[in-house]
Design a protein around this nucleic acid. Sequence first.
RNA 1: GGGCGAUUAGCUCAGCUGGUAGAGCGCUUCGUUUACACCGAAGAUGUCGGCGGUUCGAGUCCGUCAUCGCCCACCA
Length: 926
Amino acid sequence: MLDKTYDAKAVEPKIARLWEESDAFAAGAGAAEGAEAFAIVIPPPNVTGSLHMGHALNNTLQDILVRFERMRGKNVLWQPGMDHAGIATQMVVERQLMEQQVHRRDLERQEFVDRVWDWKAQSGGIIVNQLKRLGASCDWSRERFTMDEGLSTAVVEVFVTLFKEGLLYKDKRLVNWDPKLLTAISDLEVEQQEVNGQLWHFRYPLAGVRFDPQDDKTFVTVATTRPETMLGDTAVAVHPDDARYRKMVGKQVVLPIVGRLIPIVADEYSDPEKGTGAVKITPAHDFNDFEVGRRHKLRAISVMTPEAKLTLTENDDFLEGLDVTPEVRSRLAGLEGLDRFEARRRVVELMEEGGYLAAVEPHKHMVPHGDRGGVPIEPFLTDQWYVNAAELARPAIAAVREGRTKFVPKAWEKTYFDWMENIQPWCVSRQLWWGHQIPAWYGPDGHVFVEKTEEDALHAAIQHYIAHEGPMKALVEDLLENFRPGEILTRDEDVLDTWFSSALWPFSTLGWPDRTPELQTYYPTSVLVTGFDIIFFWVARMMMMGLHFMDEEPFHTVYVHALVRDKNGAKMSKSKGNVIDPLELIEEYGADALRFTLAILAAQGRDVKLDPARVAGYRNFGTKLWNATRFAQMNGVARNDAFWLRDAKLTINRWILTELTRATREVTEAIAAFRFNDAAGAAYRFVWNLFCDWYLELLKPVFMDEDAAAKAESQAVAAFVLDEIYKLLHPFMPFMTEELWARTAGEGGERSTLLCHAAWPSPEFEDAAAASEINWLIELVSGIRSVRSEMNVPPAAIAPLVVVGANRTTSDRLVRHHAAIARLARVGEVSHAVEPPKSSAQIVVDEATVCLPLGELIDLDAERQRLSKEVARVTEEVARVMAKLSNERFVANAKEDVVAAERQKLAEYQEAQERLQAALARVRDS
RNA sequence: GGGCGAUUAGCUCAGCUGGUAGAGCGCUUCGUUUACACCGAAGAUGUCGGCGGUUCGAGUCCGUCAUCGCCCACCA
């Protein structure tokens, strides 16, 4: 006998253990030989991560699909794993070290990396257990990590191959540099933030003219938001068509403070409408200026260190071509080493002192910030590794265009195309220690060798250097002779962008580059489930890498779900610290309740704003099902395989089987179409509003009756329907349903399989007549209840029923269902009459008028009011439908079945109207 | 500056290919029953953001405006 309430805390761990001990989720578990494959790769959570609502939603949806397909008999793999999360993880361990006053740079690189591995072993990956608590049915035996041996092999393979194909190269250009984390980051890791800044107007004196701040013929005014970069200016640009400046093109200005002579160039980049129409050009510190510099062969002078502090007096690049007078020297010395913001203030002061500051105005503008470090990023001139993304994007675009990969909802395809078609070179190198170190080695002359191993690189280097006469050949030969080959090469210090390895996830986790059986079976995977925030970071890159290395798209469907937002509608993120903890909800209401809530809220293309009250509501739903089972058990409901459903005789049984068929279709179709909310909703309605509210209630008199055959049939049918309910709900509420499945195995019986391996239902039972009969019964009972309630009839009072105008069908039904009606509507004897008795409440159901002769109990005013309201309602309907039908254009243009349906409606409304009016008239008379 | 999405019951949200609205929570009243008070019964509540248009008919399609949100973008 079940307890009155379901104890999630006790059951969930028990069921989890049961699944684990039986390897229930191993790849292909429960599937027949040769079954169709269904694979999902998990979006690998960060090893530093802990379960937040986004994970909970993401993994709930995946688990629903996976459990559903597993039950449908497919050969299912849900591939789990974690991401090493380069910057995030390195920051965590660095923070820990700082607590012991140790800086990363105080350690050897290998020592630091070892510490990160230690950290991972101890406190990394707690999210895996949290996912298990959620019920995620991954094949945990196949768990992978982006830095493990196999995946690292794949990373090296890809890097080397792309390099040799010319799709990956090293380039010196401006990158987004994070001066706090001291690494390059990709465009995607830059967030634009609006800043209330200022716009400074500077006068740059013309060379060879005596500068006079009052005389605008002696200078050119430029405007800037970043005064400190002026130290690296190498030109002023004006628009070629700008009449104001035409005569100045080709002349030079003297860069204030520095004293460098720089040219005025004509370039279309300069916008006559903006600022003063003349713009300072700093190729080493601005992306646009870099391009202008290239066009005009200008020098790019970097004036900052990686920490974004000024470097001038010892910066050869800066000093080159500069006439450093003592005055200049002292000014520069005063600026040396200043942080960029401090430098900004100081530069403005110096400009003002010299009379070069023309104006300052407040200015709102967007400033790029690093999404991890949170500080403004600096365009910085460095050598980095780039992937030719435009080339790889081409087949990735085609795959979606041709429908080989579909986005659900489809609207995301536009986002994907927009980005892919304008894709920039992808900077994949990072100046970190934690990650895949780039497999590139440099010879003494800086020549680069990209190979899978150091041995290969050395081999390549030796061949390369020995082949050509020269100093390198001698040096290498000398090193070899002295048995010091290790000194020939130096390895590239940098590691790869974390997304580089995640881009390979759909095939690297399956064993690539080896052609493993798993790879053959499960690639391409079936569905990728993810939030839209990582379409660019991850989905796009998996598409590129998958197509390039596997020649096939990595998944057929990308299901893009909404983001779970906080109560203000803001995106939840670790860095913002506004996460609601799903574990607390699991603790309070159970994993099933949380899962069901997330599923029913996951309408396509909508944000999910989570209200804990709903979780409580769906926990109640679980309890309801639990108690329905409990009730069934109390009445001897048990599996009876000898009973042939088709032989069910009772209308209620034939009805519930029909409704079950309908509900099953709804749930099945909805899951298959990724309409999780519809699926959950359909199951909910069937269980609560049909099975519990009506079927079990209608069964009560059957169970109390003497009729053994009816009882036995109902017990068998109820047991069958419950089993099907467990199956339908299992993808949503796996723990409770698995428990109920076990607890309803029957006398001495054990289930032949776990519920998670049971076959998904595909019932075919349909009996329209039974359906309409029970719907009539429901309408009748509801009508009587409604009247009783509105008439304030005491609940205990049992009223007789007088039926007027009933046809044969209705009369038969009244006899057949008398027990149920009596019980559910609290009525006694049923009799037939030609005229309704005096002082009775009247309900119109189809052709019959059902009367409750309440005598003294009846409140005539109330009844009159009630009937008037009914009449008014029906009259309104009649008027509406009549207006419609008398509109000839409607009759002429609307579809036939629509018109027919309206006619039918009219007839019904009119009949009801007549009867209700008659009823009202009788009440008035009495 | 470009793009996308939202605006439906007090709250949170459904509403597929057009036939005039639903759920959960909350609220009101009442609780006799072979499970369930995490329950049952009955009930109230909506100019479907505004304005136009297409259509016999629009919450649903089109245009436009308003408000809010998100994404992308190098603008001095």
